[in-house]
Amino acid sequence: MTRRIVVLTAGLTIPSSTRLLGDQLADAVAAAVGARGEAVSFEYVEVRELAQDLAAYMTSGGVATERLAAVREQISAADGLIAVTPVFSASYSGLFKMMFDALDTDALNGLPVLVAATAGSARHSLVLDHAMRPLFSYLRAVVLPTGVFAATEDFGSTGLADRVARAAAELANAVVVAGSDHVAGFAPDPTARRRTSGNDLAPVTEFADLLRGHSG
């Protein structure tokens, strides 16, 4: 079974250091999954390309354009997510946040997420823990222990390559283990909440259940 990982990057320029970090992480994850004898494929989402779709979504009461709906489907169907943002004004970029504001609140349930950020200065490194982790925790994703932060000075340093390798090993581990068979217990599993893209209707509740206790 080939694992599918979405690499979502919110860089604005071409070429972008944010995308560059995303590529390095993807390469390292490919190597780590390959080392386990498993296959992995990557799908890239450049949030910049969705800028107008996201603005239309926000200003039309939540109607997703065709392109945005397709990306929402893609993210919810993935086995893992690598999310990379540039740091703007002490946090993730507004465009990066809009992407996650446009997802269903059940879109990332239990999804392994590798968080990463780029900035001009190492002084922004806590963005990973003060901004990105709370966002993904709220969305009930599983944020991996190692986040990767790259300031301009880090590109080309061996320290960054080490952190990339460690984070990639954690994501490889999470997506390979999550896909393997394991014995379920007898107790109901509250973590088994289904991921939904928000594009389709929620399953219908029998009206008798809705009416119970309300029929006078």
Partner: peptide, 15 residues
């Protein structure tokens, strides 16, 4: 509701 958002052409196509 939708002002200042999608263009008339986009909205006509989608809705």
């Amino acid at each position: 509701v939708y002002g200042h958002g999608p263009s008339l052409e986009e909205f006509t196509r989608a809705t």
